[in-house]
């Protein structure tokens, strides 16, 4: 059974961390007024994307390397868009964007690609 490379474990960790931070940001965007519902929805979209991205770095993940990189870029892009829309606090947005860029670098790494394409199947 092959061992997951450290960089892949880091990808999982950053994905979960991003999801948790996005969840906190979404909850902090809550307000009784109706208009804030849209902000929470956008915040939870970011939560879902980061958790899904983290899950792709697990041994049980089933998507291809290209999809993992695409998802990392999508999560980061959506984070930037949601921050521009002011649906979450800008500091949360900056932290999540940094985490997203780290995830893109991890996902695009050749070691991650090799693990996803071959070693994960052997595991």
């Amino acid at each position: 059974m092959t061992v997951r490379p450290k960089i892949v474990k880091a990808g999982f960790g950053f994905g979960i961390l991003g999801g948790l931070i996005a969840g906190i940001a979404a909850l902090m965007a809550f307000a009784p007024e109706t208009a804030a519902t849209a902000n929470m929805w956008l915040g939870f979209l970011v939560v879902v994307l980061f958790f899904a991205l983290g899950g792709m770095f697990k041994t049980e993940g089933s998507v291809s390397w290209g999809v993992v990189v695409f998802m990392a870029a999508l999560a980061t892009g959506v984070t930037v868009a949601v921050t521009m829309f002011e649906a979450m606090d800008i500091w949360f947005g900056i932290i999540l964007t940094v985490i997203g860029v780290i995830e893109i670098v991890i996902a695009a790494n050749s070691m991650t690609g090799r693990w996803i394409k071959t070693d994960r199947l052997l595991g």
Binding site: W65, G66, V69, F70, A72, A73, L74, T76, G77, V78, V80, A81, V82, M84, F85, E86, I104, V105, A107, A108, G113, K117
Partner: peptide, 28 residues
């Protein structure tokens, strides 16, 4: 870029800029 895993970093930059541009249209 994503076909045959050719150029992942550049492909991810393309996706990121596209999504961010859509967000800018909605936000500003």
């Amino acid at each position: 870029d994503f076909a045959e895993n050719r150029s992942m970093m550049f492909g991810s930059l393309t996706v990121l800029l596209l999504v961010a541009s859509i967000g800018a249209y909605a936000a500003y």
